[in-house]
Design a protein around this nucleic acid. Structure first.
Lengths: 347, 347
DNA sequence: CGCTCACTCTAAAGCGCATTAGTGATCGGC
DNA sequence: GCCGATCACTAATGCGCTTTAGAGTGAGCG
């Protein structure tokens, strides 16, 4: 850490104390709203601190037991599969909004897989780096909640159904089942009976929830030829799977894609095979973004407010950090925005 | 920070010292590779530390002058304009790769604008939160380098041309001018003479560099009807500008878009106006991503390795943190990948 | 055999803050 | 007009680590 020139020195509480003519303790009381100083002194100290541009050293604060004023966020997805993902940036943007208000930092890290992610949590915990974490992409049989519970690290799971085995963790989630039901409603209403669901990563909890719901809904309606295929969310697999299922016989008349990227890639792949959307095959994207309005026809899609989702998650985490109890918060069910990619099934 | 149950306690150096039967100082020497302990003791201490799962508290480290082991990254763009951006995630992914190796954290924050971003730097500096920062989206007349210089905060500017007014900062950049020249070469080679450049945010340094270069190249070749229009990078503006310029008379025969999102939106807008790509108008995207292969025809695009870009930037920053001198590093010029969206100009 | 030097290790101080205990001064109550 | 209580403030301690000064030990040497 060589610092060649002598840069401006950071003012410390001692500087404020000297300048205000009081002890350091008085400064601490004054600036943290604690009793022990008169209001006039408090005001003076605050003024001096402001003049000097004083800000508490997070290191010192953390060391004296106040926590690191930072929350962690790990993304365990291969970078390439995040190519043109819109969800995470929106999510993080919402998270930021809430954290910034409270001057909480966001420590971000990418990981190889869940095991690696767990290692990151352990390290953060041992290094005293974060006060809590936001967990995304919950999985079936997920080791993370247990670990975080064990470490006593406050956490909010984003996008998972509530799990009563870990009462310490909060959950923020949308009801995928209801959303899937609404999509199936729409498609069967249009006369579709052969539906294929091009799902996302097989290990994710919400992927499995969607698959289960689809099967249940299909069963309830007596639809036989309905199934799901899992992918890695990439445009490449989206296109490949689309080609495969459309070549089957009889081919499906409707496709549900678990994200926008695959949906768009799928439409292109379908076109190559001579399938027109929506005349030959209807398409629904489980994620609405600019992408869905960049192809012809515009894609019918499940819309949700990812930024609000992030805000909610961050608020839950701050509540936990403030000593609140863990809870499960449900955000609005994504609503199907019908555009040009869905039409009545061919007779 | 209420912690209901008593979670596992973080082991400290004192624990290691006791367990290894030495003093805390000895532990410090042993674990930091400093002289002052015998090799046998060092090995024993290391073993004990490992057994206990000891990790240094970053707070304590930072407090005793070692720096925060964290670098900062601020993104000052409205979230909506980042809708389906692929560049930043790739960049961050590359940055992470390098930082993770050295156990450096990445503190991420979004800001409203550059002024807000400066405030974030000031706060980070005063709070002792970061050892250095990575600056993106350099602007013409940018206040950030000056501020960072003043604060003595090591920084790497990503994507800006070297600026000798701030010798303390490193720069990692690609030669936009050369890339632009290659695009103009390609297009004029195909017979295009009326070219419009749908540029990005007007304030950005590289936007201005590209605009200047285009004008210069056009002048050198005697092309009259060549100009640039700035946008906010969004698909909406990309489409709007495309409509506007194609309605002009005579309309351009080639369009250069400063990112993939606008290029794709532009192609769609052109199609609506009855312009076929590439027969009626050629299109080049200044950013290659899955998006460019999700439309028909596939888009000719300038490809670069954004992940490698991030890696290089992060490496420069770590070099700076290690006391290295600031330098300007040039990454490879983006290469034009010719696909289906460019064709000879109509006669 | 005493002396120095090199080596291994310990003691203690300090980083910036929060906090607890403690010290005067002021005040109300009798 | 004295006493205990209250208030405004200070001194001192600790958080976990790094670092400087210093102590103890044994080897090498004259």
């Amino acid at each position: 850490m060589a610092e060649k020139r002598t840069p401006a020195r950071r003012p410390t509480m001692k500087d404020v104390a000297r300048r205000a003519g009081v002890s350091e303790s008085a400064v601490s009381f004054a600036l943290n709203g604690r009793p022990g100083v008169s209001e006039t002194t408090r005001a003076r100290v605050q003024r001096v601190a402001e003049q000097l541009g004083w800000r508490p050293s997070t290191a010192a604060r953390a060391l004296s037991g106040e926590g690191a004023a930072t929350v962690g966020f790990v993304l365990a997805r291969p970078a390439h599969s995040l190519g043109v993902d819109s969800f995470f940036l929106q999510l993080v943007s919402g998270i930021q909004e809430v954290l910034a208000e409270r001057h909480l930092g966001l420590l971000f890290q990418m990981a190889e897989d869940v095991a690696d992610e767990c290692a990151v949590y352990r390290r953060w915990w041992a290094e005293h780096r974060v006060d809590g974490v936001l967990v995304v992409d919950p999985r079936a049989d997920d080791p993370r909640p247990g670990l975080l519970d064990e470490l006593g690290l406050p956490a909010v799971v984003i996008g998972g159904a509530p799990d009563d085995r870990h009462p310490g963790l909060s959950t923020v989630w949308a009801d995928d089942a209801a959303a899937m039901a609404s999509v199936v409603d729409e498609l069967t209403g249009l006369g579709h009976r052969r539906i294929v669901h091009i799902a996302g990563l097989p290990g994710l909890a919400h992927t499995q929830r969607r698959i289960r719901t689809l099967r249940a809904e299909a069963g309830r309606r007596g639809l036989g030829e309905v199934h799901s295929v899992t992918t890695d969310y990439s445009d490449a697999e989206g296109a490949a799977v689309t080609r495969r299922v459309l070549r089957a016989s009889p081919s499906p008349t409707a496709l549900i894609y678990d994200n926008d990227v695959m949906a768009v890639a799928g439409v292109a792949a379908a076109a190559e095979l001579g399938y027109a959307v929506p005349d030959d095959v209807s398409v629904v994207s489980w994620e609405d973004s600019a992408l869905c309005r960049m192809v012809k026809p515009w894609l019918s899609a499940l819309s949700r407010d990812s930024t609000a989702f992030g805000r909610t998650a961050a608020r839950e985490l701050t509540a936990l950090l403030d000593g609140g109890a863990a809870r499960a918060v449900r955000v609005p069910v994504p609503r199907l925005t019908v555009r040009g990619s869905t039409a009545p099934a061919r007779a």
